[in-house]
Design a protein around this nucleic acid. Structure first.
Length: 425
RNA sequence: GGAGAGGUGGCUGAGUGGUCGAAAGCGGCGGUCUUGAAAACCGUUGACUCGAAAGGGUCCGGGGGUUCGAAUCCCUCCCUCUCCGCCA
């Protein structure tokens, strides 16, 4: 949520800035609602004041033992008028809330302006694409050769966009998780968290998935709970409705969780393999910081995620998402894209964002500024460190050998009982 | 799932229809005393919101209701605790 003052002070300027990211702010509707809100609120508060004053007088008169009947009669239909006004005000306010909660964040000045992903800016590249003396397979074929991955079996159990992994490949998948968690907790200063995978409406609203993106969430039928689309939701919401001591900043959290996404509207996209699944594992990094440090924190967090790829010796590039491609809640986002030999292309494997105070305002998460003494909104950040399923895919494709076997990356061997090559799951 | 007890300010906790945004204690802040500190004593101390200010409004788990008036009464949901049942 943006600062409502931005709407009040100069709505046209705001609308103009939001246009960069392809969002059409309904200025007319806002102005109409805000004008009515003002009038209704003033009148409602005036009537409440009158009711409060009269009621207090009745109480005083009763205490003195006077006849209060005439005073009660004099109140008349004040209560009914007030109820009507309050109802009307409530409707206008929920209209305004809709605007506030469904308006995306403003982007940072360094974010490239553009319409779609073709306007994203490449920041840097690391590593060199491996050269093969044979035609490299994609991960589906590699998985078939080592017999460790089944989409048919998953379809029988659940449907499309699921996978069953077994044997040594399943262990490799688990090794990636352990490796990532150990790296971030021992070298990057994050505290490991175990969190619920089902969260309530308030949590999803806090981080920005609701109300606008309800169709992307898996919801339970009888309880108002949702499967988390990312550990960002439970991790970031740990600071909801709280005031943080400045000495406790920055807060750096990491968790491994499954992530559940309906992938509504991506029916024709990435249907082959395990690139886009309804369920996947992710190790997520979250930082809560002093607003003055949030852009330094974004660089640090991005580097934390990159370190995973460098340690795994997977070639990648860093891309700054443009205004037309950046997510709803983010002020600035770096995507990490890993080289996929099977597709001869870079594919997103991590997304690192600074949300500035957008989530903090929704969550009412503040810190006590020791200099000014005031309570101010914190800045929140998060990033995948990394998406485990896609990392498995990247390892399978980059480490494949002519016979279809997979070399185990050096840093993972201790997690694999010393295994160096997976030739059959 | 069944039975019961609760949810009040940073914390503990009083308050069962009216001058209650709320006693008291603890904690915090300021002061007196002290070389300094502790103790003691005195004072002070909730949040949000509208307003230039004066001042107004809202908030006693969430939502709804009764009433001129609700922390207090009623309904409903959520959460915590105790006992029983079930269970990884």
């Amino acid at each position: 949520m943006l600062d409502p003052q931005l709407f009040k002070k100069d709505i046209e300027l705001l609308a103009d800035r939001l246009r960069d990211r392809g969002f059409a702010l309904d200025v007319e509707r806002y102005l109409d609602l805000e004008q009515r809100r003002r009038a209704l609120q003033t009148e409602t508060e005036r009537l409440r004041n009158e009711r409060n004053t009269r009621s207090k007088k009745i109480g005083e008169a009763k205490a003195r033992g006077e006849d209060i009947k005439p005073l009660i009669d004099a109140v008349g239909d004040l209560g009914a008028r007030l109820t009507n006004l309050e109802d009307e005000l409530g409707i206008v306010k929920s209209g305004l809330d809709e605007i506030y909660y469904e308006t995306p964040n403003l982007t940072h000045g360094t974010v490239p302006v553009g319409a779609d992903e073709t306007d994203n800016r490449e920041i840097r590249r690391w590593g060199r694409a491996p050269e093969f003396s044979f035609q490299p397979r994609d991960h589906v074929d590699v998985g078939e050769v080592v017999d460790g991955m089944s989409f048919d079996l998953a379809a029988k159990l659940s449907g499309s966009r699921f996978v069953v992994i077994h044997g040594a490949l399943a262990r490799l998948h688990r090794a990636l998780i352990q490796f990532m968690l150990d790296l971030h907790t021992t070298r990057h200063g994050y505290e490991e968290f175990y969190v619920p995978y089902l969260v309530n409406r308030d949590s999803l609203t806090g981080t920005g998935q609701l109300p606008k993106f309800a169709e992307d969430q898996f919801a339970t039928a009888t309880d108002d709970l949702f499967l988390i689309p990312t550990a960002e939701v439970p991790l970031t919401n740990t600071i909801r409705d709280s005031i943080i001591d400045s000495a406790d900043l920055p807060i750096k959290l990491v968790a491994h969780t499954p992530c559940f996404r309906r992938e509504a509207g991506s029916y024709g996209k990435d249907t082959r393999g395990m690139i886009r699944q309804h369920q996947f594992e992710k190790v997520e990094l979250v930082q809560v910081v002093d607003p003055r440090q949030s852009y330094d924190a974004l660089e640090e967090l991005t580097d934390n995620a990159e370190t995973v790829l460098r340690e795994l010796e997977l070639p990648y590039r860093v891309v700054s998402l443009c205004t037309g491609d950046i997510g709803f809640s983010a002020a600035k986002t770096y995507d990490l894209e890993v080289w996929m030999p099977g597709q001869q292309n870079y594919r997103e494997i991590s997304s690192c964002s600074n949300f500035e105070s957008f989530q903090a305002r929704r969550m009412n998460s503040r810190w006590r500024n020791t200099v000014t003494g005031g309570k101010e909104f914190v800045h929140t950040l998060n990033g995948s460190g990394l998406a485990v399923g896609r990392t498995l895919v990247a390892v399978m494709e980059n480490y494949q050998q002519a016979d279809g076997s997979i070399r185990v990356p050096q840093v993972l061997r201790s997690y694999m009982g010393g295994l160096e090559v997976i030739s059959h799951a």
